[in-house]
Write a protein that binds this DNA or RNA. Structure first.
Length: 396
DNA sequence: CATCCACAGGAAGGACGGGGGT
DNA sequence: ACCCCCGTCCTTCCTGTGGATG
């Protein structure tokens, strides 16, 4: 009797689709990384001095998103650290999440067991603490700065310069920097000294092609899904969709996982081609909803103005958007931001892919932006009016 | 061929709330 | 208790601009 209960419970908790769903999540680092043997080999060669407790050269890693840069780096460091745990400490920082010099230094210090306040100190003070901490620590530090281009674009190369120079100030070199970027051109605007210091070694990750993606997906699917759930056809489609998207393995894995979730939700134990298509749509909708619902108030209002304005026509100019926006603020009885600000907001909305705002010259009729909606209107609207009756009442 | 539209987008700076140091 | 620094939004003032039009 009790094994029936166990069986039911385990089938409920596990479902029929997934054996280990977590293997498909983006931050999972797999045991094997197919088609990245070259890069692993090269990276290990460069980091080999760690085996002798010596500082390796700084490394610059290039490659588009989902080409395995992060996975390979984490994989190699993890395995090296297993072998030589006393020789070095490694710190991984994603500069998109920790996107200010302050956050980066704070993250480093936290990783070195030094508590720092969330904000309040000057960056200079943090840097002083960082240098002090470095002096106390015996081992080599490998600092991974993922998406380093985001940081450099936002805040210039000052911290990078300071970090690369930390070695000189210490007298004894202790810190190795691994910079990871998907923007090949980003070094153009950097201080040449930073570039040359960071790229003592370089490593390039080419995109995966459809076949390689298929390989990766097949391997991962066999571990993550129960037998017979995923067909070759489904794998092929996910691989093809992701290959079209510059060979992004993360996207491919996302598609596979969400397609599986859809099948599971609908109580089936086979994932179909249809599920993959639904997954594609759902992933995009989730992204849009998340990004729109966390927008500042006036950005939402501008977006609302665009939705209203687009009821009658295909595109709007900045001026038209501003007019509708202003009428909304008037109705709500609140202050409006300037047109200059709205111009920036439009660019921000374009950046996150919710609208497209293209600068056009219309000769006699001036220079403006042509604004149209890029995401699903219903999703955008839902995200705007969620938990905000003031905005909900504007939709009519 | 100069003009002039309807803005673009850079520069500087400020209000404000959160969070320190001393 | 008081001062300082931070990031986030936002303002003010500004110079720049491609091409239809007169």
């Amino acid at each position: 009797m009790s094994d029936i209960i166990d069986a039911v419970l385990s089938s409920l908790s596990k479902g029929k689709v997934f054996k280990a769903r977590e293997l498909l999540l983006p931050d999972y680092v797999p045991e094997t990384l197919p088609h990245r043997e070259e890069q692993i080999k090269k990276l290990v060669e460069i980091l080999a001095p760690l085996a002798r407790a010596e500082r390796p050269n700084n490394i610059f890693i290039y490659g588009l998103t989902g080409t395995g840069k992060t996975a390979v780096t984490k994989f190699v460091l993890k395995n090296l650290h297993k072998r030589f745990p006393n020789n070095f400490i490694y710190i991984y920082i994603n500069t998109r999440q920790s996107d200010t010099p302050y956050r980066i230094l704070a993250d480093i210090l936290e990783n070195l067991n030094s508590k720092v306040p969330y904000t309040g100190l000057s960056t200079a003070e943090l840097f002083r603490r960082f240098l002090k901490k470095l002096n106390e620590i015996k081992s080599i530090i490998v600092l991974v700065l993922d998406e380093i281009d985001v940081l450099a674009k936002k805040h210039g190369d000052d911290i990078l310069y300071r970090l690369t120079r930390a070695n000189n100030e210490l007298g004894k070199s202790k810190i190795s920097i691994i910079g990871i970027t998907n923007d090949v051109k980003f070094t153009e605007n950097l201080d040449p000294r930073v570039v040359s210091s960071l790229s003592e070694e370089e490593l390039v990750f080419p995109p995966y092609n459809a076949e390689e993606l298929e390989d990766i997906l097949k391997q991962r699917a066999s571990l993550a899904f129960n037998e017979g759930v995923i067909s070759d056809e489904v794998v092929k489609l996910c691989a093809a969709l992701a290959a079209r998207d510059h060979g992004d393995a993360r996207r491919a894995l996302d598609l596979l996982r969400v397609a599986g979730e859809i099948a599971e939700r609908e109580g089936r134990n086979v994932v179909t081609i249809d599920d993959v298509e639904k997954a594609r749509v759902e992933i995009e909708k989730d992204r849009v909803f998340e990004v729109v619902s966390t927008l500042p108030f006036h950005s939402k209002l501008v977006l609302m103005a665009i939705l209203l304005g687009l009821k009658g026509k295909n595109t709007l100019t900045t001026g038209e958007v501003y007019e509708i926006y202003s009428s909304l603020t008037k109705k709500l009885g609140i202050e409006s931001v300037t047109q200059r600000r709205v111009s920036d907001i439009l660019n921000e909305l374009d950046m996150i892919g919710v609208i497209t705002a293209k600068v056009v010259n219309r000769g006699r009729y001036g220079k403006t932006k042509e604004v149209s909606i890029a995401a699903n209107k219903d999703v955008v609207l839902k995200a705007i009016i969620e938990k905000d009756e003031r905005l909900a009442s504007m939709w009519s």
